[in-house]
């Protein structure tokens, strides 16, 4: 561990750049998934534990298309449309019925969905680890000591574009405004003639589409396996819980933060602590918030 610190500060400080870059790239993809979660959580109070499986499924759709010769970047819109349709269906058959229930129900129902999706992917695509080759070059910077793969850069760009589009959509379009209205006060929105059921359906479909987009990036950057979803779900939850709902800048910056924490933990302590680091971050934030809330409550007393 000391030796690893020594590398960072003494032997090859340039490594920091690599870690920061990787952290940002990972963070971008994580932030995308987390933003979808924040959306459904904030608007319809559904905690989707199948978030990670949506991501992996999006990746697999891109993989299937890539086998047919469609480049993953071209596949992105197709994946998003297909995932949106799936999201709509899931809403109609499942989510609509748990929305009214207490908070815990959606968590469990979507866990069931997660199991189902994993197994269906396993049956369709097989348990083998799959990758998509994007045929994009990797740049070596700083005398070959920092790698900058174009595919990661591209996905960062796609995340940025998507984020801007989502913000614009939420601010400007009628649908976006209706979604925000519903999130603020569902009853008032209904009184004003907004069909909240349709808003919910749309929001959930939008979330699925966003996850699908994240999945395409995952398939180009990392590897796909039917059972990998859970780690993306957990990290999405960690980010949303830490950042708070309805706060896109917060979600994105927390996503970057988590990406960096994971990279640095993996580097300094070893890869075996990488998964745990996300959880530790989540707990620290929760405890900090709790302490703050307690202080507030005491003031009220």
């Amino acid at each position: 561990m000391l030796f690893n610190l020594q590398i960072l500060f003494d032997i090859a400080p340039i490594t920091n750049i690599q870690l920061i870059l990787d952290g940002i790239f990972i963070g971008a993809v994580l932030a995308l998934g987390a933003y979808g979660l924040a959306l459904v959580w904030g608007v319809m109070n559904v905690k989707n534990l199948a978030q990670g499986d949506f991501i992996i499924l999006g990746g697999y759709i891109a993989f299937a298309l890539a086998r047919e010769g469609v480049h993953p970047v071209m596949a992105l819109p197709i994946v998003m449309v297909l995932m949106a349709m799936l999201g709509w269906m899931v809403y109609v058959f499942m989510i609509r019925r748990v929305i009214e229930q207490d908070m815990f129900t959606s968590l469990l129902a979507t866990f069931g969905l997660s199991l189902l999706l994993q197994q269906v992917m396993n049956l369709i695509f097989g348990p083998e680890v799959q990758v998509i080759d994007s045929h994009l070059p990797n740049y070596q910077l700083f005398n070959d000591s920092v790698t900058l793969p174009v595919v990661k850069l591209l996905s960062l760009g796609m995340v940025a574009v998507l984020a801007v589009l989502i913000v614009l959509f939420m601010r400007k379009s009628r649908m976006g405004q209706a979604i925000r209205a519903t999130a603020q006060d569902e009853r008032a929105a209904r009184v004003l003639g907004i069909n909240t059921d349709r808003i919910y359906a749309f929001t959930f479909a939008l979330n699925a589409a966003i996850c699908g987009a994240a999945g395409v990036m995952v398939s180009m950057i990392w590897v796909l396996q039917p059972f990998y979803g859970i780690s993306y779900s957990l990290r999405s939850f960690a980010i949303v819980t830490a950042a708070g709902l309805g706060n896109l800048p917060g979600v994105i910056s927390t996503g970057f933060g988590l990406g960096l924490i994971e990279q640095y933990t993996g580097f300094i302590l070893g890869a075996e602590y990488q998964v745990a680091s996300a959880v530790v971050m989540l707990l620290l934030v929760l405890v900090y918030r709790q302490r703050r809330a307690k202080r507030k409550r005491q003031v009220v007393r």
Partner: peptide, 24 residues
């Protein structure tokens, strides 16, 4: 032995470890 990392079962990213390799 300069690097001795253990990978969690569901780790799909070992870039932290490989960055170390690149540095050392």
């Amino acid at each position: 032995i300069v690097i001795d990392d253990k990978l969690p079962a569901d780790l799909s990213d070992m870039s932290a470890t490989l960055t170390k390799v690149k540095a050392i």
